[in-house]
Design a binder for these strands. Structure first.
Lengths: 247, 247
DNA sequence: CGCTGTCGTTGACCTGGATCAAATAACGAC
DNA sequence: GTCGTTATTTGATCCAGGTCAACGACAGCG
């Protein structure tokens, strides 16, 4: 923990030196353009575990990029139903669904002590008018978010509980690789109840499936970390037992 | 049918006179800007029922707006699982998830004979750089698509079969109103199997739920049209039986 | 240290909706 | 019109996973 914070403070404070710049908003921008971008970004803003970064309904003033740590987004509908929409990791942008009517459509909550970069939309908007490559990257990221949600719809709609858990573990592992880390161990910074909510299961079922995967030697669970022992078996299980539409 | 096609030909061929301009891409643009936009749009391109407008993996050359008729979008994953992502109606834009890597991430299929407006992305892109209000509207529509998918995730994740069907009927009805039509009858241009796939149910369950709603006097089904007899009861049922996370 | 609250696991049971099956209804081709 | 095909409804069973309940494992705290 202490080691981690020390490392963080050693990280460069600017977009142009950030290790996440190929995943995040600066990607595709010239060095000069990145310098312009970083002038409006407040980097490394710390937030505590279970703190809310923004709340559903808040006016859209800033969007955020995760520097380190992890967050979840949640929607609540008029009946009080609560659904976790996603878990977010370094390089991810939060708040993109708010452009529609200039207010946040979901609530963002930190899963652990986290650092984010704050990007004021008004200033971003002006810069986007000046820099076509920034507009491209922003639209690319929004479009990416759309197709990520589409993949999630497919998983939730057509897979059984085993398939859902295995798909999630594979996705988290793949995202680690995108950030240049080892595929495993995957850290489950969210609680079982949050995992269950996200995957539309009950927490007992999540627990049973994870136990079963460990018993079968596919994964190894320790604390909140999951080692992927047999990635091939995980892939096989992520698609087995999935519904196929007749005809 | 014949009457409908005649009416269509009488519709103005330009964005500036299109009755859907407040829902579609031209919204928020000045009259001059709309004139620029309509120079690059091919309006009223006819496609037949079950024709594919674009296919998952196709290079992104055009995006489309629906003029009249209806369409669905489908994703297929590596295991051959097929999931319908949404049903689309006049004023809706199709293909927005393709900006991420310049190729379509889903397949768009017409549910009935349909007219679409074709918008070449290369020319749109150039125009977007010139017209900030066009960029705003495009980002607004993408952001809207994101939060629509988030609502769908909530419905599929937390509601039982009755809640899903009722939510769908209410959504279709609300969308009719947005287009300036009566809230009812809702036309189910898609087949029961497609409805079932979209809602992650089996077609038998869809049929049973619809029958039950009709027996209870909430709706009246004739052919593919559904009259909403008791909107209040529909609303009540759309939230009843929904899962609430403990704690 | 024991107390208390939170979180996770495990077991026993039950139900909503999936699955299997068969009868009807609607549609299109000729 | 008739025939063949496809879409939809209805009925009868079954099971994955939801529900209820008990227990174990920690963590923070006085």
């Amino acid at each position: 923990m202490v080691a981690t914070s020390l490392q963080l403070e050693q990280l460069a404070e600017t977009c142009s030196h950030c290790s996440l710049r190929y995943l995040c908003l600066p990607y595709g921008l010239s060095h000069e353009d990145i310098l312009e971008l970083e002038r409006l970004v407040s980097t490394g803003v710390p937030i505590g575990a279970s703190d809310e970064l923004f709340v559903q309904g808040d006016p859209l003033e800033d969007i955020y990029a995760i520097r380190d740590g992890s967050m979840k987004t949640v929607v609540v509908d008029e009946d009080g139903l609560e659904q976790i929409l996603g878990f977010y990791y370094p390089g991810d942008l939060l708040g993109l669904d708010g452009f529609a009517d200039q207010k946040h459509h979901c609530t963002a909550v930190a899963l652990e002590p986290t650092h984010v970069c704050r990007i004021p939309v008004a200033r971003l908007d002006r810069l986007v008018d000046k820099l076509p490559s920034l507009r491209h990257q922003l639209m690319r990221l929004m479009s990416q978010a759309l197709s990520d949600e589409e993949k999630l719809l497919l998983t939730l709609g057509r897979k059984n509980s085993m398939g859902r858990i295995c798909s999630l573990l594979l996705t988290l592992s793949r995202r680690r690789e995108m950030r240049g880390l080892e595929p495993s161990p995957v850290s489950l910074s969210m609680k079982r109840l949050e995992l269950a909510n996200f995957l539309s299961m009950r927490l007992e079922t999540v627990s049973r499936v994870l136990t079963r995967l460990q018993r079968d030697g596919v994964i190894r669970i320790r604390h909140n970390d999951v080692d992927i022992v047999d990635p091939e078996a995980l892939r096989a299980r992520s698609s087995q037992g999935a519904w196929v539409a007749d005809q």
